[in-house]
Design a protein around this nucleic acid. Structure first.
Length: 568
DNA sequence: GCCGTTTTCGGCCCGACTGTTTTCAGTCG
């Protein structure tokens, strides 16, 4: 049984209860289903520890159902409902405009149970004859079936699409139809992956502005179009919402459309508890607006400090804002350089000179060149001799260059936890990044953990590269005892890396926050393999901010000289 | 069915858009 499977079952139950017009329960089941779908650990593990009800939205009853399912392989509540409604809700959920009520209407009148049945019914023009449907609904369903998997499932890594989004905003600004245009949504929170874009605008001529928007060359098709809200599908495969609000509501709208959802729900509840009403138009007292022009006015009127968008994930920031104890998170402009990059010397595609020049143009004060070591032959890893040669070259470059180059390595942590290079060469390096790339599959949790601990305790490494090894959408994180690793890093003053390469985004932000609580410090790296990758330092910084890191927690805020002084 | 700075009972976010209605239900975010 996977979390995914269980989550789908709970969503199914929610859908079926909704058909029965049951009040509130569908909401409860959906909440539980969503929590489980996004849970970082296996539900079964939680069950074994007796911690099911610690899952957000899971209480006694749903926990009982989960237990029943784990023990017997079936769930009575689900089975009974499914007998009444033998419908493939999971597939229908992926189709826009197809909710449970419509699914049931189609089943009741046309015996439509799954996608194939639905396709056929549409083919025979049967759907348009149903009450509540019409020709247009039928056509839309037909269209949405064709593109269903792409519309809802696809998420993009923000690091790859943020420049595109910003250029889109720039074009809207330059169009002359808008007085203000800003990015909102998960992109503003700098979430690692995004499912759509939200753009917010102020306009005195919104009809014309919406026309301009839907006719942009990036727009593939228009999904809905109104004077305050327009949704389109972009050529990169993401949907984009553009909302136009009044200037006096702009702050409230930015707040609302930045989210995330549970952050917003919490805010609204706080508003209600103070006898106020919060929506995207403002904060109201008995119908009279008391805040909303700026985000700050909204938060302040709710008795809270304003917080950076990256913090708004409902992981304690609401409470911290209420008690005026928000962290002063590291700023993008406090990052002085990049601490992880590769050149043609190993598996990069640009020369060291090209990388340095590109880093200088970005305003970096320094860049660490951290080639792979010899036991990673696929990446043309370097041995001691080649490192010595490279460092001679770097010393020369450093003499005349305004931007400084740190001598480093991304060093293989070998199968038994020993290191790929010996002490004498390592001693000449400014930064040593220990990394797991190989022999991880066959090793169990304890072996893998000890392997990393041995490297940390060796006294020879500065930081641990992309600590969990995860690749978004491709590879799970290593199964390790991370608490032990955090403890050991803190004790031995070994840093953890935040790798900003979008596929990695590693450490993930929630673990950054946890590691910080152990007193761990962090290095940020773009893990560049070409000059085009250098921009990913911004994504690493975003993760640091989302993980509540302050200036002192981040090594990249130090100057070149200060970094050289760090002892190892 | 869940949950707790309105707390163990009684609420549970709320507004926009669409298509089908002729005042609204369904869906979405």
């Amino acid at each position: 049984m996977s979390n995914q499977e269980l989550s789908e079952m709970l969503f199914d139950i929610a859908d079926m209860l909704e058909i029965d017009d049951v009040q509130w329960e569908p909401r409860a089941y959906r909440k539980a289903a969503l929590s489980i779908a996004t849970l970082p650990v296996d539900v079964k593990q939680l069950y074994e520890k007796g911690k099911l009800t610690e899952i957000d939205g899971v209480g006694k009853s749903i926990a009982g159902s989960i237990e029943e399912y784990i023990k017997t392989g079936s769930m009575k509540k689900y089975k009974d409902l499914k007998k009444k409604y033998p419908i493939d809700f999971a597939s229908f959920r992926k189709i826009q405009g197809m909710g449970p009520k419509r699914a049931y209407a189609l089943y009741k009148k046309l015996k439509v149970r799954d996608l194939d049945d639905l396709r056929k019914a549409i083919e025979d023009n049967k759907v348009r004859e149903l009450e509540g449907f019409g020709e247009k609904s039928e056509e839309q369903l037909k269209h949405n079936i064709e593109s269903f998997s792409k519309v809802k499932e696809e998420r993009k890594m923000l690091g790859y699409v943020i420049d595109y989004l910003e250029s889109l905003v720039e074009k809207l600004k330059e169009s002359g139809f808008f007085e203000r245009v800003e990015v909102a949504g998960s992109s503003r929170r700098m979430k690692e992956t995004v499912g759509d874009f939200d753009i917010l605008a102020v306009s005195g001529k919104s009809e014309a502005g919406m026309d301009f928007f839907t006719k942009m060359k990036e727009v593939k098709e228009t999904i809905v179009k109104g004077s305050t809200k327009t949704s389109v599908k972009l050529d990169i495969g993401l949907n984009c919402d553009l909302r136009v609000v009044e200037s006096r509501s702009f702050g409230a709208a930015m707040q609302y459309f930045t989210g995330n959802k549970s952050h917003n729900v919490k805010l609204r509840k706080i508003a209600i508890s103070k006898g106020l009403k919060l929506n995207e138009y403002g904060l109201f007292k008995g119908g009279k607006p008391i805040a909303g022009t700026t985000e700050e006015s909204v938060y302040n009127s709710l008795g809270m400090d304003l917080m950076e968008p990256e913090l708004r994930e409902d992981t304690g920031e609401v409470e911290a804002a209420q008690s005026h104890s928000l962290p002063e998170i590291v700023r993008y402009d406090e990052i002085q350089g990049d601490l992880h990059s590769h050149t043609t010397n190993s598996d990069g595609t640009n020369s060291i000179e090209e990388m340095i020049e590109a880093a200088r143009r970005m305003g970096h004060k320094y860049i660490a060149i951290t080639e792979h070591s010899k036991s990673l032959p696929v990446a043309k890893g370097l041995d001691d001799k080649r490192f010595e040669e490279l460092f001679k070259k770097i010393n020369k470059l450093n003499e005349k260059s305004e931007i400084k180059v740190l001598k480093g390595v991304e060093l293989e942590i070998l199968k038994d936890g020993s290191l790929d290079l010996d002490g004498s060469t390592l001693g000449k390096m400014d930064i040593v990044i220990g990394a797991l790339h190989q022999w991880t599959k066959g090793q169990d949790k304890k072996t893998l953990t000890n392997r990393v601990l041995k490297a940390i305790e060796s006294g020879k490494i500065t930081t641990i590269a992309h600590p969990t090894g995860r690749m978004i959408g491709k590879r799970e994180a290593f199964d390790m005892d991370y608490q032990k690793i955090f403890e050991s890093c803190s004790k031995n003053d070994v840093f953890l890396e935040i790798d900003g390469f979008p596929d990695r985004s590693d450490l993930p932000f929630d673990m950054v926050k946890e590691a910080k609580s152990y007193g761990v410090r962090f290095t940020l790296g773009s893990d560049s393999h070409s000059i085009g990758h250098l921009r990913f330092i911004r994504m690493a910084t975003a993760i640091a901010r989302r993980g509540w890191l302050e200036k002192d927690n981040v090594i990249n805020t130090l100057s070149y000289k200060e970094i050289l002084k760090l002892k190892r």
